[in-house]
Amino acid sequence: MRTLLRGLLVLLALLSASLAQAAPRKVIIDDEGFALMHLMLLESSDVEVLGITTVSGNAWANQAAGMVLRGLEIARREDVPVAQGATYPLLNSEALTERWEALYGKLVWKGAWMKEWVEPTRQSLPVHHGPHDPLDVPWGNPKGKVSGEIAANYLIRMVHEHPGEITIVACGPLTNLALAQRLDPQFASLVGELVYMGGSLNPRQVREGEAAAQFAREFVNTPRREFNARFDPEAASIVSHSPWRKLTVIPVDPSTSTERSAALLERMAKAAPREVGAFISDMEPGFPMWDEIVAGYLLDPGMVTRAEELYIDYDTQFGPSYGDMLSWHGPYRPGLGEQRAQVVLEIDPARLEALMVRTMAQGKARESAARP
């Protein structure tokens, strides 16, 4: 009898472990808009998107929230809550950026402050808005509304409710995360993993073509500069000194081997649910896949072909290197609380593209199964 009972207990333990492994990964997305990265995570059966928070970066936080709400309607995922986050960086501003440019030269991309390209480029220029302008979502304004909770407070509440279980995926400036850490010193230690897209080490133009050459302009003479960190350097530095259980950084470097090509968008659109496919078909091609690499790493870490363990910080001195990424191997770090990070340097682009198409097919299969 004891032998039988012992055997049943072992079987139950194995079943519990199997179920735990099969459970979707809990994710919160912190970003500055809505694009393929969101769709990959929303359509994947391996991820449970608990919520999405928005921050100013490429667009102002309110415009970003509108894009996310409309994107969720297109994906039929209105069940996912949206919390609007920080409108302004901690210290940086449009006026300071203009002063910096007068002293040290023009920035290629300024996000929400962008009014014109410095030189001709094939990429279109987004419509310029003020920080409090009414919603003007390119693919239609949403019917849904943001939650009444500020993004930093939402993040703090969720990690306390699910300690060690949530992965935060951040693909914009890190203002919301810095605010959450300053409000609650336990915040970072309660996050299972932070994966963020930001920073730049020494990107090389790998992919051929006009689009790759144009995006290479940003790092040819300034290899350590990247927009997400440059928009709010102080927030990036605070995040770099916060006690994360696991920290994964995806700088610009691996994106130079990728491109959101017209052919890839066509493949994804054909594989996706109908409304999502139409949305993808309308996307502008010719961009590196910065954020898509983040989603790809989350869903298939095996696509990473080279990574390095480094200690990271960002330059917060108002000078020519303001916002640039700083990095050290362990023995050489300053020892002021910099956190160890896994830094992704190279990926398998073909494997990423196959994954992107596959996640769309998962969404289509789930939609077909739900039909009466």
Rank of each mutant, 00 (worst) to 15 (best):
R358W: 10
N62E: 13
G302K: 03
M40W: 01
A212V: 05
V82I: 08
E165K: 06
S242E: 09
A178C: 07
P233R: 02
A213R: 01
Q123W: 07
R6Y: 11
L155H: 06
V55N: 04
N141Y: 10
G105W: 00
I29N: 02
S16C: 12
G71F: 03
R225T: 00
E94W: 14
L183V: 02
L299K: 05
S321L: 02
W109K: 10
L135E: 11
Y332F: 15
I250H: 08
S261M: 10
N202R: 11
S45I: 12
G57E: 08
P233D: 03
L336R: 14
G144M: 10
V47K: 05
E367F: 03
M360W: 00
L5E: 13
L201F: 14
G277A: 09
A35I: 03
R77N: 11
E308P: 08
M158T: 10
E218H: 10
Y311H: 13
S189Y: 06
R76Y: 09
I74K: 09
L355R: 02
I150E: 15
T258N: 08
A213S: 15
A180V: 08
D184M: 06
M325A: 08
S368L: 11
P163R: 07
H129L: 14
G319W: 01
L345G: 07
R76V: 09
V10C: 13
R274C: 11
G337W: 11
P81R: 10
D30F: 05
R306E: 14
E367M: 09
A263S: 14
S257E: 02
C171H: 01
E210D: 14
P288K: 00
L264T: 07
L177P: 02
V252F: 00
T248A: 04
A361V: 03
P273K: 06
A262D: 13
A112G: 11
P142M: 04
E208I: 03
G335F: 13
L107M: 12
G57Y: 07
R333Y: 09
G111P: 04
Y297V: 00
V108D: 12
T316W: 12
Y332E: 15
E101C: 07
A65V: 06
Y196L: 10
V108S: 08
A365R: 13
I280A: 03
T248I: 08
S368R: 14
L155W: 03
V357M: 06
S242G: 09
V357D: 02
Q214W: 00
L190V: 00
N153W: 00
D282R: 05
A188F: 10
L5M: 14
R260W: 07
N221H: 14
L39Y: 01
L72D: 01
L265D: 09
G330D: 12
Q214R: 00
E161P: 08
V137I: 07
A152E: 13
M114V: 08
V294G: 02
Y322C: 03
L4W: 10
A65N: 06
E284L: 07
V159F: 03
Y314H: 12
R204W: 04
R182D: 15
A269H: 05
M114Q: 14
V239N: 12
T3M: 12
G198V: 01
Y322K: 05
S124W: 05
G140Q: 05
A341F: 08
E218N: 08
Q84M: 14
G105T: 03
E353A: 10
T359K: 12
A350G: 11
G335V: 09
V82M: 05
L247P: 04
G296E: 03
L183M: 14
A211T: 15
